[in-house]
């Protein structure tokens, strides 16, 4: 995934079955953000892989005061990349089991 300066990682083991997964997001390179980022550590949240959209979580983070509106693209993309990776790994694992 392209380095957006915002890192998103699994916050728990992915057993490949549960639809909601805990993720952790933090800023590795504040310079890449459009606005001055008051570093408040890593933000952990649960994401429903089936029914939720990464951009919505990014919007909620902004509404909760973690980021500025102008950084919604970078935050949304970072979550999207990680979610895509999780789904890709899950598909690969299913294929291996067949």
């Amino acid at each position: 995934a392209e380095d957006t300066g915002v890192r998103v990682e699994l916050a728990e083991e992915d057993d490949g079955k549960k639809s909601s997964i805990a993720l952790k997001l933090w800023v590795e390179d504040p310079k890449k953000l459009k606005t001055k980022y008051k570093d408040n550590g890593a933000i952990e949240f649960t994401f429903d892989l089936e029914n939720e959209v990464p951009e919505d979580v990014a919007q909620e983070m902004i509404e909760s005061g973690f980021f500025h509106e102008s950084d919604i693209k970078i935050v949304g993309k970072s979550i999207k990349d990680r979610v895509a990776l999780i789904k890709w790994k899950r598909e690969r694992t299913v294929l291996l089991q067949v």
Binding site: E9, N40, G41, I43, E44, F45, E60, E63
Partner: peptide, 27 residues
């Protein structure tokens, strides 16, 4: 100080914790 936990109006909980050290070091 920054709240350790923020619950968004839509109900999602955001828990703030220290940024994990670069885990590459201890692998």
């Amino acid at each position: 100080g920054s709240a350790a936990q923020v619950v968004h109006s839509a109900g999602r909980r955001f828990i703030v914790s220290p940024v994990p050290e670069a885990r590459l070091k201890d692998q």
